[in-house]
């Protein structure tokens, strides 16, 4: 019987420049280990993450998406992260109707000093998506 390779999810991360991306840098400086399933994309603010980007990622075959921003109250652009939160909340309700588990999209607040939290969160999202399995759209569509 052919050996089944363990499912390695592809997770796209939209990380805000001022906080979460810097936390990612710090995790690197501190040599913290976390899974390589994440494809990080640096945006200036979590509030600049258009929900369409998230959908694009999922339609492109990503098994999960995580948006990382500054902690509430500390957004570099004052209120961008609040907007991100509202958008992602609405997007998740839409995903359910599209037949995609809404738990595939995460939004987390990771400040620049929290390198350890960043690494931990990446581990958590990878584990969670692994349990959910591959993106269901892959079965229906050839993506």
């Amino acid at each position: 019987m052919a050996e089944e390779k363990e499912f390695q999810p592809v997770i796209v991360g939209f990380f805000c420049n001022w906080c979460t991306a810097t936390a990612a840098d710090l995790a690197g400086t501190l040599r913290m280990q976390y899974p390589a399933n994440i494809r990080p994309i640096r945006t200036m603010c979590s509030g600049s993450v258009d929900p369409v980007y998230v959908l694009r990622a999922l339609l492109g075959g990503a098994d999960g998406v995580i948006v990382g921003g500054c902690t509430p109250g500390d957004c570099h652009y004052v209120s961008g992260n609040y907007k991100a939160r509202r958008r992602m909340a609405i997007l998740k309700t839409m995903l359910k109707t599209l037949g995609i588990e809404d738990d595939r999209v995460w939004i987390r607040w990771i400040s620049a000093a929290e390198g350890a939290k960043f690494a931990r969160t990446m581990r958590e999202v990878t584990e969670s998506i692994k349990k959910l399995g591959p993106n269901p759209l892959r079965e229906d569509w050839s993506i």
Binding site: L26, E114, G115, K117
Partner: peptide, 9 residues
Amino acid sequence: LCPGGPTAG
């Protein structure tokens, strides 16, 4: 207290 400290905050 420091998030980057020995107890991760």
